[in-house]
Amino acid sequence: MSEQEPVQQSDEAEQDGRRPDRRRSAAAERRRAREAAIIAATRSLLDARGVRDAQIEDVARAVGVNRAIIYRHFTGKEELFALTLVGYLRELQQALTDADDPEAGPEERLRRGAKAFLDYGREHPAFVDCGVTILRSGPELLDEISPSALFRLGRAMTGCLAGAVAILREGKEQGVFDIEDPDLVANTTYAMGLGGLQLARLGVVVREDAPGVPAVVPVGAEQVTDTLVEALMALARTR
């Protein structure tokens, strides 16, 4: 009996040593689950109301917590929007992959990708709002969100842009595209696309009907997106 006791004590000590790890793991899992719930609630609010009308209090209410809990998980509204944008970007990446035809030439592949991007943006206005909000934050964004959130956002953006960069690089090597920096062109076309999608939603353009006399005239969303595709293609073709 006495010979077995040390073994039993050793087993109990080993189990006691594992308990803190299990508790930490469970706490981390609960934290991840709550963060996911908060981001999902934010996505629902953005889809329903847009960025302007989505408030932290509404997100907290949807999750069933107070706003202080939101700030325990996120540095602020900018970080919450940034991580919500990650979800949109992952969906967009899949849409771009589905639209691509690796057997086609660079011009056709780039055109298909541009069309898929614009179609996704028209179907998800909150993605456009969120993307524009993040771009508008400028360099201050680097100070407003945590390094881990910035890493996740950067990885999602590069995931979306990687396909376009590869196509642009291939077209450059084949002499189809006259560009110096495929990454810069891809980033520029992303920003142009977001701005153009805002115009497509607005549905009007300004023109001069007579010298010094401006006029606001309606424009169709399809017309705007078709023009955007041609502008993006022209950017790739000319230096």
Rank of each mutant, 00 (worst) to 15 (best):
F177Y: 14
L85A: 10
L150E: 02
A13T: 09
L85Q: 10
L142C: 06
T238G: 05
Q223R: 15
R61W: 03
F117C: 05
S10G: 12
G203P: 06
V229R: 04
V65S: 05
M192W: 14
Q8A: 13
A116K: 01
D101Q: 09
G138A: 10
S137C: 11
E103Y: 07
L228P: 01
R19T: 09
G212H: 12
E5T: 15
C160Q: 09
Q4M: 11
G159A: 12
N66M: 11
R201T: 11
G50A: 11
T75C: 08
T227N: 09
L45G: 00
K115N: 08
E14L: 15
L46I: 02
G17W: 15
L141D: 00
A28F: 10
R155Y: 02
L80G: 01
V216R: 02
T84P: 00
L235N: 06
R239F: 10
N66A: 14
F117S: 09
V206G: 05
A95Q: 11
G212K: 07
V216E: 00
A104W: 10
A221W: 01
A164I: 06
V132T: 11
L153Q: 00
G175V: 07
A200P: 00
D183C: 11
T84D: 02
A27W: 06
R111T: 03
P182F: 08
V204K: 11
I69F: 09
A99L: 11
R67T: 13
V51H: 04
Q4D: 10
L46R: 02
Q8C: 06
G138L: 06
K172Q: 15
F81T: 01
A215H: 01
L168Q: 04
D181N: 14
A236H: 06
L150K: 10
V217D: 04
L92A: 08
